[in-house]
Each structure stands twice: as C-alpha cells, then as structure tokens.
Design a binder for these strands. Structure first.
Length: 539
RNA sequence: GUGGGAGUAGCUCAGCUGGUAGAGCGUCGGACUGUGGCUCCGAAAGUCGCGGGUUCAAAUCCCGUCUCCCACCCCA
C-alpha cells in the first residue's frame, strides 16, 4: 500500500460518526446567541442554571422515561462501567464457544470446567465487592451452577438411553448458560442521557432541594444522545435547552407562566411562525385517562382492519400514539375517535380550563390539539408542543408538560413538576431557514504594519484595543500594504490601522475606515477614543 | 429497523449513446516594493465514495458495499 493510499484511508476512517457533527464558525456564533438569550430570558423568570452529568445509571432513565418506550428500549447508548478487561475477555471466549455434539462428552466437560472456574473467580470478586454486589449478579451465579447440574443430570440419562430428539434440549441449556454469562455485570450499567428531566429530578432529590423555598426553578442546556436514524433536524447527538419547575403547588398559573416564558424566549431569539399547541391528558386514574384509554382502545378495535400495520400494533402498545399518525388515509378514521377532553375527571377538567384562561390573561396565543400526546410515560394533565416552519417533517421545536408523580417515582417526596425541552438544533435550523441567522463575524480592526519599529507599535496597539474589547487581527509577518488591506477586506474588518515608518516618525497613526475609504491620522492616545466614538451602540 | 434519492477539486456543479478530467466560486502567487474591493495572468488542488465485474478501453454500463440526505418509525 502506498503512502498516499494509506493517508486517504485514514482520512476516511476518521470522520464524525453517524448522527454527530461539528459545529463550525460562523454558525457557532448563532448557537452562542441562542444560548445567551436563554440565559437572559430564563433568569428574568427566576430560573437558575443546573449543569448535569452526561451519563447516569440506565435504571434512572428506564424508571423515569418508561422501560417500554423506544427511547429506553432501543435508542440509548448503554455501557458497563468497569475496569475488568481480562474478565470480559474470558467471558467473550466462553460465549463464542460453538454448540457441542452431545456425544462429545470430553469437550463439554472441558467447557464446564472453564465456566465453573470463571464462576468461582466471579464469586470471589462478588464477595469482596470488587464487582457490584447486586441481587441480580448473585442470581446469575446461582443459575449457572444450577444449569450445569441439570445438564449433567440430563447428559447421564441421555448416555444411558440415547435419543437424537434430546440434542435440542441440550442446545437450549447451552444457550441459557451463555445468556446467564452475559447477564452478569462487572460494573454499573450506565447510559448517555437521552433527555434531562430525569437527571434534574434525581438532582432535586439528591440535594434535598425540597428544603429550598418552593418551587425550585431550574434550566439546563447541553447534548443528549439517542441512537435513531438521522434525518433533517434529528441527530444522534443533539442539543436541548430545557427548564423545570419542581415542588410547590400545581396551580395552573405555573403551567401558564412556563409557557409564557417559552414564547417570550422564542420571540426574543427571533423565531417566527411558531405555533403553540396544548392539550390535557388528564391523570392516571380509572375515572380519567385510564378510562379514556380503555374507551379509545375499544373504538380502535372496531376499525382495526382499516388501519396501517403500525397503528394496529399501537392499539396494544400505546393506543394514544395512534392519534398522531400522519397517514393521510387514516385521518378520517381518527376524526371519529373519542376525545380525551370528554373523559377527563372533574379536577383535571377545571384545571385545564384554568390553564387556558391563564394563558389568555398573559396574552399567549394557543391552539388546542386533542390529538397531542406526549411520548414519555411521565406526563400528565397539561401537555404542549411548539412547531416552527422550515423544519421538514420533524417540525416540533419544543415539547413539554406536567409530571407530578415523577420525583416520587424516583424515590423522592411527593412533588409537583412541569417542564419543557427545546430542540436546539431544530430551533437553529428554523432561524437559518427564515434568514434570522445573521451574526456579525468580522474583526473590528486589522493592523497593517510594515517595518520593525512599526511592529512594536502594532503589538502595543493590538494589546490596548483588545483590552478595550475590540476584535483585532495582527498579522504575524510583514506584508505589503496592498496585500494587508486585501486581507483586511476578506476578513470583513471595519477599520485598518496603518502603521509604517511615516507613522512611527510622525507619532501619528493612520486609521482607515474600510467601508468608505476615508482615513485620518491620530496621535496614539486618541485612537481608542476615536474607535469608541465610531462604534454605533455598545450595549 | 423499513423505504426513496445522492456521492466528480475546499464549495456549487458540468461531463450526451464508454475513448483516459472540466467550469464558476474559493485558496495561494504575480501584474501592484505606502493603500483594499475591480480587472488581467498564473499556480496548487481529483487514482470521479470504496471494492469487484463486463470491455482493447469505465466517472460513464452491471453487481456489491459504505457514507450523506429525505421520509416512515420514534421524538426535541
């Protein structure tokens, strides 16, 4: 292989992995603006920033988001956190062992010996708590011993009266052994966070935030991870900006204020054409949502044969999800289904009415959408979603809702909660599509210098200007003035500071306004003041 | 996981029914050794995503594969 070929192959090998991407200037300036605006707006509503770990125990997400959801069951990046490389290698070797011929007793007993050795090593580590001393691990160790006992028993019987039909049975035992080997955990099972609400609740509990004045208002921003197929506005590493209100009351005014804050933020950040959809999905009780779901399920069963396979499957897995099917052919059918609003209990009904009234008092425009259901298990009562133009089929920039039971579900005190998450990638996409993405990039001053003496002055000037907050480009090598001004132009500089022998000997510096071509000479101490005066508005 | 589209210079793309690689923009240098944007000249940069097949000959035709994009699923 030639050097060139090798190099090319390496270049191909090292690229951002699927669903992840680099954000580069000038785009990153827009990201900063979006995030800065969130800091500003959220803090005016009394929210404080919380910074959370990127990974947590898998169990936290399984419990909070719901073990049956796609997010948890197939989209999380999960790994075991341990340092036992050699144990893992032994396990891998045992697991790849091929199926035995049931008559080949000697190779089976060799395998058995190896496994039992391995199990006793694990047992030692387990007893000394080097590997997690969990009931699950204990069970796994016992079950392996148990399986071998039964296999030996089975084998003895087989050798007395051989029968081929029994070979399958033997294979099944073997599969069970391999499965058990795999189920033993050397370390904690962790996952990259697919969302942040669970972490916020965990932190609320862990830091006893119920002792703080209630409610506690927190916001966060950062990357989340889901292993989905990438498409427009959807990445495997994506960014969310979210906020949660925990504790205190569940007054409808709180729901309304969170939404008001959200709309204020979108307005400040320059998002146009955003539409707010709201709904109430009641609470998990027989006289409320559970009753509705049963009702819906029955209605769906009646029209089952008219639905697509996906929707048919959802009748059992998650009937509410049928409601947001996008299939054209299903729309007339869905229109005939019962509405949840007609099945809410009295409290949820008045709660929803009051949320709407509170929104109106705040001048927040909304559209009711009875088909709006949230994908995560923890939501109840108020749910909302905001869509924006320019996003393709993934047109939701924000989703949120109330989750009163969640903190308790995670082992904390009974606590009210409501929150939302903004898809930052999608927000940025929509801003870019609507042309609201202009962010100033150029330098303020480009220093065109020539000659040793001038260079000393140029360094001094650069230092002063930067201290004063101007963005300054100081070329490292001497250039002809023509070239320097060309560079200044390409970099989008507003001014060129021209420093050559003339300037040094006269002690007058030349400052040139590039847009107009005007230039004037100033004594060194007046330069800063000149630039400050020129600056249109320095917030 | 399932479908559809696309991969040619840093970017946007042309390259017809096979004949050995092009443009514009950008980058760098020069015309232009104290004044930018314009113009002109020049240069660097591609084994045409990768692998295989057909052929005297493949960017072009066939097969496979990878990646990206879009949609479904799911969700922010």
């Amino acid at each position: 292989m030639s050097d060139a070929t090798a190099k090319r192959e390496e270049r191909r090998k090292f690229q951002a992995i699927r669903g992840t991407r680099d954000l580069l200037p000038p785009e990153t300036a827009l990201w900063n603006r979006v995030e800065q605006t969130a800091h500003e707006v959220f803090s005016t509503f009394g929210f404080g920033e919380i910074r959370l770990p990127i990974f947590e125990p898998t169990e936290l997400f399984a419990r909070a988001v719901g073990g049956e959801t796609d997010i948890v069951s197939k989209e999380m990046y999960t790994f075991e956190d341990h340092g036992f490389v050699e144990l893992e290698q032994v396990r891998a070797a045992l697991i790849i062992t091929k199926t035995f011929d049931i008559k080949d007793v000697s190779s089976f007993s060799a395998f058995e010996r190896n496994v039992l050795n391995y199990v006793s090593t694990l047992r030692e580590r387990f007893n000394s708590a080097e590997v997690p001393k969990t009931p699950e691990n204990e069970r796994v160790l016992d079950s392996i011993l148990n399986l071998f006992e039964r296999m030996n028993h089975f084998l003895k019987k087989y050798l007395e009266t051989p029968a081929d039909s029994h070979a399958d049975m033997f294979d099944q035992y073997l599969l069970d052994v391999k499965h058990a080997l795999r189920s033993f955990h050397f370390g904690d099972v962790l996952s990259l966070r697919p969302e942040a609400t669970a972490s916020v609740c965990r932190a609320y509990i862990e830091h006893n935030m119920q002792q703080l004045p209630q409610p506690v208002k927190l916001y966060y921003m950062g990357p989340m991870f889901r292993r989905e197929r990438p498409q427009k506005g959807r990445y495997r590493q994506f960014y969310q900006i979210g906020a949660e209100i925990l504790g205190g009351s569940d007054a409808p005014a709180i729901d309304a204020e969170v939404i008001e804050m959200l709309m204020t933020y979108f307005d400040k950040v320059g998002l146009h054409g955003a539409t707010l959809y709201i709904n109430s999905i009641g609470h998990n009780a027989e006289n409320c949502r559970r009753g509705y779901v049963a009702n819906l399920k029955a209605a769906l069963e009646k029209v089952k044969d008219k639905l697509c396979p996906d929707s048919q499957r959802r009748i059992d897995t998650n009937p509410l999800r049928v409601l947001d099917s996008k299939l054209e052919s299903e729309q007339p059918i869905i229109a005939t289904l019962p509405h949840i609003a007609d099945h809410l209990c009295d409290e949820c009904k008045t709660n929803y009415a009051e949320v709407k009234r509170q929104l109106e008092v705040r001048g927040v425009l909304y559209q009711e959408n009875w088909r709006l259901v949230r994908g995560l298990d923890y939501y109840m009562r108020t749910t909302f979603e905001i869509t924006a133009p320019g996003l393709g089929s993934q047109n939701a920039v924000c989703g949120g809702g109330r989750y009163d039971g969640l903190v308790e579900l995670l082992g904390g005190p009974p606590t009210k909660g409501i929150g939302f998450a903004i898809g930052e990638d999608r927000l940025i996409l929509s801003l870019q599509e609507s042309g609201k993405a202009k962010v100033e990039q150029g330098r303020d001053v480009y220093i065109a210098w020539m000659g040793e003496h001038a260079y000393a002055a140029a360094i001094r000037a650069a230092k002063d200007l930067r201290n004063a907050g101007f963005s300054v480009e100081l070329p490292p090598l001497e250039q002809k003035f023509g070239k320097a001004l060309g560079q200044a132009d390409k970099l989008g500089a507003k001014y060129a500071l021209i420093l050559g022998d003339n300037e040094v000997s006269e002690a007058l510096w030349t400052i040139k306004t590039l847009s107009t071509g005007e230039q004037q000479k100033l004594p060194e101490p007046e330069l800063l003041q000149f630039l400050r005066d020129q600056k249109p508005e320095s917030q």
